[in-house]
Design a protein around this nucleic acid. Structure first.
Length: 243
DNA sequence: CCAGACGTTGTT
DNA sequence: GTCTGG
DNA sequence: CCAGACGTTGTT
DNA sequence: GTCTGG
Protein backbone atom coordinates (compact mmCIF):
# COMPACT_ATOMS: atom_id res chain seq x y z
CA UNK A 1 0.00 0.00 0.00
CA UNK A 2 -0.99 2.17 -1.03
CA UNK A 3 -0.98 4.64 -3.77
CA UNK A 4 -4.63 4.82 -4.72
CA UNK A 5 -7.91 4.49 -3.00
CA UNK A 6 -11.61 4.88 -3.45
CA UNK A 7 -14.14 7.10 -1.71
CA UNK A 8 -17.56 6.40 -3.07
CA UNK A 9 -19.95 6.94 -0.20
CA UNK A 10 -19.03 10.55 0.38
CA UNK A 11 -22.53 11.27 1.57
CA UNK A 12 -22.25 8.63 4.29
CA UNK A 13 -19.35 10.36 6.02
CA UNK A 14 -21.54 12.31 8.44
CA UNK A 15 -23.60 9.28 9.38
CA UNK A 16 -20.69 6.94 9.69
CA UNK A 17 -18.25 9.13 11.53
CA UNK A 18 -20.25 11.86 13.21
CA UNK A 19 -23.51 10.24 14.27
CA UNK A 20 -23.13 6.48 14.53
CA UNK A 21 -19.80 6.74 16.25
CA UNK A 22 -20.19 9.65 18.69
CA UNK A 23 -17.56 10.35 21.31
CA UNK A 24 -17.84 11.56 24.89
CA UNK A 25 -18.86 15.17 25.10
CA UNK A 26 -19.00 15.62 21.37
CA UNK A 27 -21.85 16.50 19.10
CA UNK A 28 -22.71 16.52 15.46
CA UNK A 29 -21.07 19.11 13.31
CA UNK A 30 -21.97 20.35 9.88
CA UNK A 31 -18.85 19.90 7.77
CA UNK A 32 -20.03 22.52 5.31
CA UNK A 33 -19.62 22.09 1.60
CA UNK A 34 -17.11 19.46 0.60
CA UNK A 35 -14.34 20.26 -1.88
CA UNK A 36 -15.59 20.18 -5.43
CA UNK A 37 -13.56 17.09 -6.19
CA UNK A 38 -15.73 15.21 -3.71
CA UNK A 39 -19.06 16.38 -5.04
CA UNK A 40 -18.99 13.10 -6.95
CA UNK A 41 -17.77 9.71 -5.76
CA UNK A 42 -14.08 9.07 -6.38
CA UNK A 43 -12.71 5.79 -7.70
CA UNK A 44 -9.07 6.72 -8.11
CA UNK A 45 -7.65 9.05 -5.51
CA UNK A 46 -3.93 9.55 -6.06
CA UNK A 47 -1.07 10.92 -3.96
CA UNK A 48 -0.88 14.74 -3.73
CA UNK A 49 -4.62 15.01 -4.29
CA UNK A 50 -7.01 16.22 -1.61
CA UNK A 51 -8.56 13.54 0.55
CA UNK A 52 -11.31 13.87 3.14
CA UNK A 53 -10.19 13.21 6.69
CA UNK A 54 -11.87 13.05 10.07
CA UNK A 55 -10.03 14.52 13.01
CA UNK A 56 -10.52 16.25 16.32
CA UNK A 57 -10.77 20.00 16.17
CA UNK A 58 -11.90 22.26 19.03
CA UNK A 59 -13.28 19.33 20.96
CA UNK A 60 -15.31 17.76 18.22
CA UNK A 61 -14.94 15.62 15.18
CA UNK A 62 -14.52 17.50 11.99
CA UNK A 63 -14.30 16.55 8.34
CA UNK A 64 -11.45 18.29 6.58
CA UNK A 65 -9.82 18.01 3.21
CA UNK A 66 -6.08 17.48 3.31
CA UNK A 67 -3.33 16.85 0.82
CA UNK A 68 -2.34 13.17 0.69
CA UNK A 69 1.42 13.25 1.18
CA UNK A 70 2.51 14.60 4.54
CA UNK A 71 4.59 17.77 4.62
CA UNK A 72 6.17 18.10 8.07
CA UNK A 73 5.65 21.36 9.92
CA UNK A 74 9.40 21.92 10.03
CA UNK A 75 9.92 21.65 6.28
CA UNK A 76 11.69 24.68 4.87
CA UNK A 77 10.05 26.46 2.01
CA UNK A 78 11.29 24.81 -1.13
CA UNK A 79 12.98 21.94 0.70
CA UNK A 80 12.86 18.72 -1.23
CA UNK A 81 11.17 16.01 0.80
CA UNK A 82 9.94 12.53 -0.01
CA UNK A 83 6.31 12.06 -0.87
CA UNK A 84 5.14 10.79 2.49
CA UNK A 85 1.98 8.92 1.57
CA UNK A 86 2.58 5.92 3.85
CA UNK A 87 3.94 5.65 7.37
CA UNK A 88 5.31 2.28 8.50
CA UNK A 89 3.84 1.30 11.85
CA UNK A 90 7.25 0.28 13.20
CA UNK A 91 8.64 3.76 12.53
CA UNK A 92 5.83 5.89 13.96
CA UNK A 93 7.41 6.50 17.33
CA UNK A 94 10.90 7.28 16.10
CA UNK A 95 10.92 8.79 12.62
CA UNK A 96 11.16 12.58 12.57
CA UNK A 97 8.24 12.98 10.20
CA UNK A 98 5.89 10.81 12.26
CA UNK A 99 6.78 11.37 15.90
CA UNK A 100 5.00 14.70 16.21
CA UNK A 101 1.93 13.70 14.21
CA UNK A 102 1.61 10.49 16.25
CA UNK A 103 1.21 12.64 19.37
CA UNK A 104 -0.77 15.55 17.98
CA UNK A 105 -1.89 14.75 14.47
CA UNK A 106 -3.96 11.61 14.26
CA UNK A 107 -6.82 11.40 11.81
CA UNK A 108 -9.06 8.94 10.02
CA UNK A 109 -9.10 8.68 6.27
CA UNK A 110 -12.45 7.24 5.18
CA UNK A 111 -12.55 4.95 2.16
CA UNK A 112 -14.57 2.19 0.59
CA UNK A 113 -11.55 0.35 -0.74
CA UNK A 114 -8.09 0.68 -2.17
CA UNK A 115 -5.89 -0.69 -4.91
CA UNK A 116 -2.76 -2.70 -4.59
CA UNK A 117 -0.51 -3.62 -7.50
CA UNK A 118 0.84 -7.12 -7.61
CA UNK A 119 3.15 -9.15 -9.78
CA UNK A 120 6.52 -8.51 -11.45
CA UNK A 121 7.56 -4.92 -12.02
CA UNK A 122 7.08 -5.00 -15.78
CA UNK A 123 3.69 -6.72 -15.56
CA UNK A 124 1.97 -5.40 -12.48
CA UNK A 125 -1.74 -5.93 -12.08
CA UNK A 126 -4.05 -3.80 -9.99
CA UNK A 127 -6.22 -5.50 -7.38
CA UNK A 128 -9.17 -3.88 -5.66
CA UNK A 129 -9.48 -4.55 -1.94
CA UNK A 130 -12.62 -3.71 0.01
CA UNK A 131 -14.98 -4.86 2.72
CA UNK A 132 -17.18 -7.77 1.71
CA UNK A 133 -20.23 -5.81 2.86
CA UNK A 134 -19.12 -2.72 0.95
CA UNK A 135 -19.23 -0.50 4.03
CA UNK A 136 -17.16 2.61 4.47
CA UNK A 137 -14.13 2.12 6.73
CA UNK A 138 -11.27 4.30 7.90
CA UNK A 139 -7.54 4.14 7.45
CA UNK A 140 -5.41 5.21 10.40
CA UNK A 141 -3.91 8.51 9.30
CA UNK A 142 -1.35 11.02 10.54
CA UNK A 143 -1.35 14.66 9.60
CA UNK A 144 0.72 17.77 10.04
CA UNK A 145 0.25 21.44 9.34
CA UNK A 146 2.79 23.39 7.32
CA UNK A 147 2.83 27.19 7.43
CA UNK A 148 3.98 29.13 4.42
CA UNK A 149 6.80 31.37 5.69
CA UNK A 150 5.61 34.48 3.87
CA UNK A 151 1.90 34.22 3.26
CA UNK A 152 1.22 32.40 6.52
CA UNK A 153 -1.10 30.11 4.60
CA UNK A 154 -1.59 26.73 6.27
CA UNK A 155 -1.32 23.45 4.38
CA UNK A 156 -2.62 20.34 6.10
CA UNK A 157 -1.40 17.05 4.73
CA UNK A 158 -1.66 13.43 5.78
CA UNK A 159 -0.24 9.92 5.44
CA UNK A 160 -1.74 6.45 5.78
CA UNK A 161 -0.21 4.08 8.33
CA UNK A 162 0.83 0.68 7.00
CA UNK A 163 1.45 -2.65 8.71
CA UNK A 164 1.98 -6.31 7.87
CA UNK A 165 -0.62 -7.89 5.61
CA UNK A 166 -3.32 -10.28 6.79
CA UNK A 167 -3.57 -13.75 5.28
CA UNK A 168 -5.85 -12.60 2.44
CA UNK A 169 -3.40 -9.95 1.29
CA UNK A 170 -0.09 -11.63 1.97
CA UNK A 171 -0.03 -13.18 -1.52
CA UNK A 172 -0.81 -9.77 -3.00
CA UNK A 173 1.58 -7.47 -1.17
CA UNK A 174 3.93 -7.36 1.77
CA UNK A 175 2.29 -4.36 3.39
CA UNK A 176 -1.26 -3.27 3.96
CA UNK A 177 -2.85 -0.06 5.15
CA UNK A 178 -4.03 0.05 8.74
CA UNK A 179 -7.82 -0.08 8.85
CA UNK A 180 -9.23 0.63 12.30
CA UNK A 181 -12.13 -1.20 13.86
CA UNK A 182 -14.86 1.18 15.00
CA UNK A 183 -13.93 1.05 18.68
CA UNK A 184 -10.35 1.82 17.75
CA UNK A 185 -11.33 4.83 15.66
CA UNK A 186 -12.46 6.78 18.73
CA UNK A 187 -9.26 5.99 20.58
CA UNK A 188 -7.06 6.94 17.64
CA UNK A 189 -8.85 10.29 17.36
CA UNK A 190 -8.83 11.05 21.08
CA UNK A 191 -6.29 13.85 21.56
CA UNK A 192 -6.04 13.17 25.29
CA UNK A 193 -4.33 9.85 24.59
CA UNK A 194 -0.62 10.42 24.31
CA UNK A 195 0.73 7.12 25.55
CA UNK A 196 2.46 5.69 22.52
CA UNK A 197 1.89 2.09 23.53
CA UNK A 198 -1.87 2.60 23.71
CA UNK A 199 -1.85 4.03 20.21
CA UNK A 200 0.38 1.40 18.68
CA UNK A 201 -1.83 -1.30 20.18
CA UNK A 202 -4.63 -0.15 17.86
CA UNK A 203 -2.54 -0.95 14.83
CA UNK A 204 -3.32 -4.47 13.64
CA UNK A 205 -3.84 -6.08 10.27
CA UNK A 206 -7.55 -5.78 9.58
CA UNK A 207 -9.27 -9.18 9.90
CA UNK A 208 -9.21 -10.89 6.54
CA UNK A 209 -12.66 -12.42 7.05
CA UNK A 210 -14.18 -8.95 6.51
CA UNK A 211 -12.29 -8.32 3.29
CA UNK A 212 -12.28 -9.32 -0.32
CA UNK A 213 -9.80 -8.73 -3.16
CA UNK A 214 -10.17 -9.14 -6.89
CA UNK A 215 -8.20 -8.08 -9.98
CA UNK A 216 -9.37 -5.05 -11.92
CA UNK A 217 -8.43 -3.69 -15.33
CA UNK A 218 -5.34 -1.55 -15.78
CA UNK A 219 -7.34 1.59 -16.55
CA UNK A 220 -6.77 2.60 -12.94
CA UNK A 221 -3.06 2.93 -13.67
CA UNK A 222 -3.71 6.33 -15.16
CA UNK A 223 -4.23 8.88 -12.42
CA UNK A 224 -6.69 10.82 -14.55
CA UNK A 225 -8.99 7.82 -14.93
CA UNK A 226 -11.99 7.81 -12.61
CA UNK A 227 -15.46 6.34 -12.39
CA UNK A 228 -17.18 3.12 -11.35
CA UNK A 229 -15.89 1.22 -14.39
CA UNK A 230 -12.50 1.08 -12.66
CA UNK A 231 -13.97 -1.40 -10.18
CA UNK A 232 -15.13 -3.88 -12.83
CA UNK A 233 -13.41 -7.25 -12.41
CA UNK A 234 -10.62 -7.73 -14.91
CA UNK A 235 -11.71 -9.70 -17.97
CA UNK A 236 -10.62 -13.30 -18.19
CA UNK A 237 -7.01 -13.54 -19.23
CA UNK A 238 -6.62 -15.22 -22.60
CA UNK A 239 -4.38 -18.25 -22.65
CA UNK A 240 -0.98 -16.75 -23.14
CA UNK A 241 1.14 -19.48 -21.67
CA UNK A 242 1.44 -21.33 -24.97
CA UNK A 243 3.27 -19.33 -27.57
C1' DC B 1 29.68 20.70 19.55
C1' DC B 2 27.47 21.48 14.54
C1' DA B 3 25.53 19.66 10.14
C1' DG B 4 22.30 17.25 8.06
C1' DA B 5 18.50 14.30 7.88
C1' DC B 6 13.84 13.83 8.58
C1' DG B 7 10.35 8.21 3.81
C1' DT B 8 8.24 4.01 1.65
C1' DT B 9 7.68 0.47 -1.54
C1' DG B 10 9.48 -3.17 -3.97
C1' DT B 11 13.64 -5.51 -5.83
C1' DT B 12 14.05 -10.88 -11.86
C1' DG C 1 17.85 5.09 -14.63
C1' DT C 2 15.55 8.36 -11.78
C1' DC C 3 12.73 12.09 -10.63
C1' DT C 4 8.27 14.67 -10.74
C1' DG C 5 3.31 15.22 -11.03
C1' DG C 6 -1.14 13.70 -10.11
C1' DC D 1 0.81 3.96 -6.64
C1' DC D 2 1.87 4.66 -12.06
C1' DA D 3 2.90 7.62 -16.13
C1' DG D 4 5.68 10.58 -18.15
C1' DA D 5 9.46 13.54 -18.34
C1' DC D 6 14.18 13.92 -18.60
C1' DG D 7 16.10 21.24 -21.84
C1' DT D 8 17.89 25.65 -23.50
C1' DT D 9 18.31 29.70 -26.08
C1' DG D 10 16.14 33.45 -27.52
C1' DT D 11 12.00 35.49 -28.50
C1' DT D 12 6.82 37.76 -33.72
C1' DG E 1 11.38 20.82 15.81
C1' DT E 2 14.34 16.94 17.09
C1' DC E 3 17.33 13.21 16.34
C1' DT E 4 21.65 11.04 14.40
C1' DG E 5 26.33 10.94 12.74
C1' DG E 6 30.77 12.58 12.83
Amino acid sequence: MCGRFVLIQVGELMVRFMVIAPYPGGHRQDPGPLPAMFSEPRYNIAPTQKVLTVNFQNGERSIRPMRWGLIPSWAKNGQKLPLNINARDDRLATAGSWRGPLRNGRCLIPADGYYEWTGPKNNRKPVFIHRKDGRLFAFAGLYDTWRHPFSGELTRSCAIVTTSPNSLLRPVHHRMPVILEEEAEAVWLDPSITHVGSLLALIQPYPDEYMEAYPVGNAVNRVAADGPALLAPAPEQPFLTEK
